[in-house]
Design a protein around this nucleic acid. Structure first.
Lengths: 123, 123
DNA sequence: AAAAATACGCAAATCATTTGCGAGTACACT
DNA sequence: AGTGTACTCGCAAATGATTTGCGTATTTTT
């Protein structure tokens, strides 16, 4: 099943990938259609094996749905995403829950700026 | 100029609006084309008068670019967005800047869950 | 092995947003 | 007022990521 190839790519990637990146990667090994990639991806997301994140660029990024809570620092120059595990939002969530009664189940957080590499190159 | 009509709608709205919502609103008063709305919106965003936010639903939401830092609680049931000003992310940003050298200039944060209203109706 | 269920490829559809182009309108300078 | 230049708009077509319909292949179930 081609699903395994797709899931493997996601499992072995240190950062989140677009459907096209996954397609390109899997294509090196087997014949596959882009729509199959999308279909499989949606499948994996439904099964909670993969997490889909929509970034400000309106493209979906897929990553392994591990429990480890991560967010990304996205460089506006090179567009690379650097994961970070610093996230104290749980505190804010509790506060919001307490003060508004809104039952928060998840959140998305995205930092934008310039990465050290690009900062260096700019000079 | 039709720009004024568009900007007025945004100024007078308590929450962020989609291009289509703005179009519908402005259409009640004058003749206007949807592409004009989009063009004007991009213009206002370029001039930093309006802020554009891409949500997980991949639709762009526009709001007045005031300095007041806001984030939204988005109900997965009714899809309404409730603004909140609780945001202690600045601390996290400083920490990241210090520890990674990444020069953060902005961030987007989106909470998902069920609003009190929908919670009540579900029972 | 036949039947039932899935997986897949391909081409066309979708939907928010953008863009090319041509016509209309405003502003500036003489 | 006249002419040139620059915006502003409307309209229709293009874009680009993602989805979907449908017919065929492949797997799973019995």
């Amino acid at each position: 099943m081609k699903k395994d190839y797709i899931f493997d790519v996601i499992k072995n990637s240190p950062n989140s990938l677009t459907a096209e990146e996954i397609y390109n990667n899997v294509s090196q090994n087997i014949n596959i259609n882009l729509s199959t990639v999308y279909r499989t991806l949606n499948n994996l997301v439904d099964k909670d094996l993969v997490t889909k994140i929509v970034r400000q660029d309106k493209i979906s990024y897929y990553e392994l749905a591990d429990n480890e809570h991560k967010h990304y620092l996205i460089c506006d120059k090179c567009n690379q995403a650097y994961p970070t595990d610093m996230c104290d939002i749980e505190k804010i969530e509790r506060k919001i829950k307490r003060e508004t009664g809104f039952n928060i189940t998840s959140h998305t957080l995205e930092f934008h700026g310039i990465c050290p590499e690009c900062l260096k190159n700019a000079k």
